[in-house]
Design a binder for these strands. Structure first.
Length: 230
DNA sequence: TGGCCGTGATCGGTTACTTCA
DNA sequence: CATGAAGTAACCGATCACGGC
């Protein structure tokens, strides 16, 4: 039998390869099983307004009870999960950020919730995890931008100084060693020595990318190396 | 007591798949 | 058999709204 997407070690993040569609495809592989689990045992509508999702839920959930948590006046009554319930859901989420119908039903039964509630909890959890991750990524990129701006400022200043030196003292300029500061990428810290070549740079790339993890993926620029004087 | 925040619930849209004419 | 429309299920982002602080 095919493995579920969540069983393949895929996790939710901005860079995750687990797209909704790929996961959906995985879920679809369980279609017969799903149809069995989702037999409408209690198709009756509730007294209060029934939304499209809720209606789907009552058709899908099967064993869901009738109490959707809304009063006779149609007002929402907010459910608060207990600490134990939250802990179980969190553990389960860490294990698989998405649930197949069987897992959802089992979890719902274990916690005494409707499967729709478990489903909503996971949807909200995924959305809010992604939001947090976006904030973290944003902060990281902001810092990167600041660092690069500062580096750029410094390098421009250095270029200015070198140009000035070239005008004032061409002989000294021609015989000075290349500035090492121009041979290191500030974001991925790839360093090349003065007699390096592009091949050396490429050899360093993989190592640097591995070392830096996500950060290594930020830098796609060629390393700025001052041309050697002939 | 009003504002803020965390969070459960809802809404509307998208996509992939199935069924049927 | 191929095909397009309709139906269904699952998911998502945005938002609402309750309840605690």
């Amino acid at each position: 039998m095919m493995e579920r997407a969540e069983d393949l070690g895929l996790s939710l993040s901005l860079s995750s390869s687990l797209t909704p569609r790929t996961h959906h495809v995985a879920m679809q592989l369980h279609a017969p099983e799903r149809r069995f689990l989702e037999m409408p045992l209690l198709p009756a509508k509730r007294v209060c307004e029934v939304s499209a999702d809720e209606e789907r839920s009552s058709q899908r959930g099967g064993s869901d009870d009738e109490d959707g948590g809304c009063g006779m006046d149609g007002s929402r009554k907010k459910l608060r999960l207990s600490k134990d319930q939250s802990a179980v859901l969190e553990d389960s989420f860490r294990e698989h950020p998405t649930l197949n119908p069987r897992q959802k039903a089992a979890l719902a039964q274990q916690l005494g919730l409707r499967s729709r509630q478990v489903e909503v909890w996971f949807q909200n959890r995924r959305a809010r995890t992604k939001l947090k991750q976006t904030e973290v990524d944003c902060e990281f990129l902001k810092r990167c931008c600041e660092t690069l701006t500062e580096e750029n400022r410094r390098l421009q200043k250095e270029v200015q100084e070198l140009r000035a030196l070239k005008l004032v003292s061409p002989h000294q300029y021609m015989h000075m060693s290349p500035p090492t500061t121009l041979t290191m990428c500030p974001s991925c810290e790839r360093v090349s020595n003065n007699n390096n070549t592009n091949n050396n740079n490429n050899n360093n790339n993989n190592t640097a990318d591995r070392r830096n993890g996500v950060e290594g993926a930020i830098c796609h620029r060629p390393i700025a190396v001052r041309p050697q004087h002939s």
